[in-house]
Design a binder for these strands. Structure first.
Lengths: 65, 65
DNA sequence: TCATAATGTAAAGTATTGTTTACTTTTAGT
DNA sequence: ACTAAAAGTAAACAATACTTTACATTATGA
């Protein structure tokens, strides 16, 4: 798993805290996702993708496996 | 949350067990997803969408929050 | 340089996803 | 009607997403 959350967030010039707020999750959740500590739910992924105006597949990609 | 897993599975004429096997999860997981018992991980959602040849957003949609 | 915001990290706790087993009900074919 | 496969349901368990709190480190600006 690989994701462009940090990149897309940077494009909007948002902090982790702002993004978290916007999505209704904690800042640590954003941090953990950016660091690939875990694999978010599809709902959260869809909300994020929508916010960033990209598709889920663009935002998250499965590398091997 | 709403999803078209059952519909897409029907289009391929697959059983829950076949789909589960294909995705490397249990049949109960497929059943639970079809019944909206839970909100799968984005990895599983991406794998499913790929199998069905649709986008994650087509397969899963957020209704109200 | 000093202060403050932003990010990184960690650990304990809660909620939810996903597994396993097992049994019931429905569907489909003969 | 009988049989077998498929789907529904349920409950106990394991794994992991996500929260909360707290503190350390790095970036940014006055």
């Amino acid at each position: 798993m690989k994701n462009l959350v940090k990149v897309e967030r940077a494009r909007l010039d948002w902090t982790q805290a702002q993004l978290a707020e916007e999505l209704g999750v904690s800042r640590q959740t954003i941090h953990a996702i950016e660091k690939n500590k875990f694999n978010p739910s599809v709902i959260l992924a869809i909300k994020m993708a929508k916010l960033f105006n990209v598709t889920v597949e663009e935002l998250f990609s499965i590398e091997q496996e």
